[in-house]
Design a protein around this nucleic acid. Structure first.
Lengths: 188, 188
DNA sequence: GTCTATAGCTTGATAGAC
DNA sequence: GTCTATCAAGCTATAGAC
């Protein structure tokens, strides 16, 4: 991609925003082209298999972001409190304080797209495992830790829907505030 | 089947399923026609303003269902425990044990559609108020009751996304199991 | 009230110039 | 690597027969 006028990372970011805002079916090639600043034919040059490949790249990009800003920080030797403070701040940034949807939600109504569905499932399981480790560190048994992690993720996902419908990020903010207690078991 | 009129309620149910399965943009007139058994022109006879009107009717139908099977049961004089048992069973039915999406989620990425957005917000606030009353009945102050209600709804919505991505309804089931404690404050 | 047929636009995708 | 131009198929929506 040496001669590209727009860097790959920047391009992927812009494409991601379209999928998060409109969902899989609503993210048309026209919208993707307009948002990226490229023409449709140029998008096909970079993603020869078209929209499915773009969606898969978006899912992969989001996974990579989470790996760097959520999963990896939780694996350091820092205290649970310090790690969670960083991760919560990063989640606040990723979801733009509750104003942007989760890619997991936006992409999971794609219909016939097994590869994408598998990628979303893989990413979600990695997220669960990262959160579950926090629960284990605070004394939860393995299966309880996994359930607690999934519940915490469910609250985040759900609060983003509510923030969207209500045009009010308050529920999302409270969810992030409660995340430490949620994972460490001080609340159900 | 040809030339036989379909009852309004049955028709609305089938249209609703398409929106819940594919989202607003993915629910094309062709899919709506195929699922309803009517031709596109017949759908326009019943909904002259087209897809926007269908989506609005779907939102209204879901609201009516919730009013009858969730909001009203919570207003009876029965015990909190008994009321919640009924409501939880009805939610399990509506979401088909976690295999069907929430209309709130599926319709809220519609883009430019202020009327639909307002209807979704209205329905969600009614749901919040119904759950909040349960929290108040168990001693929560008004604003805490409202927050607790929204959190409970967020968990339901989020667990449906997770169930969809994981193809596993376990998280949704656990969310429903925890709903009574969630609302009455025995868990955060 | 439902149908067939079709209009006009948008979609995902391709060909070929530069 | 990006562009203009184009295609067939799909889209929302309409007209008019029965």
């Amino acid at each position: 991609m040496a001669h590209s006028t727009i860097p790959d990372a920047e391009l992927l970011d812009r494409l991601t925003e379209v999928f998060r805002a409109y969902g899989y079916h609503g993210a048309s090639l026209s919208r993707l082209a307009a948002a990226s600043g490229l023409e449709k034919a140029s998008l096909y040059h970079r993603f020869p298999k078209g929209k499915q490949q773009i969606a898969l790249a978006v899912a992969g990009g989001v996974y990579a972001w989470f790996q760097q800003h959520v999963f990896n920080p939780l694996k350091t030797a820092a205290s649970t409190r310090d790690k969670l403070r960083i991760v919560i701040e990063n989640l606040r940034i990723f979801y733009a304080d509750g104003t942007k949807s989760c890619a997991l939600d936006a992409l999971s109504l794609a219909g016939e797209n097994d590869e994408l569905a598998a990628a979303l499932k893989f990413a979600l399981l990695a997220w669960r495992d990262a959160f579950a480790q926090v629960a284990r560190d605070s004394g939860a048994p393995p299966d309880e830790a996994g359930s607690r992690a999934l519940m915490a993720i469910a609250k985040i996902e759900g609060s983003l829907i509510l923030a969207r419908v209500l045009s009010d990020p308050a529920v999302f903010r409270r969810t992030l505030d409660e995340l430490p207690d949620q994972l460490t078991g001080k609340a159900g």
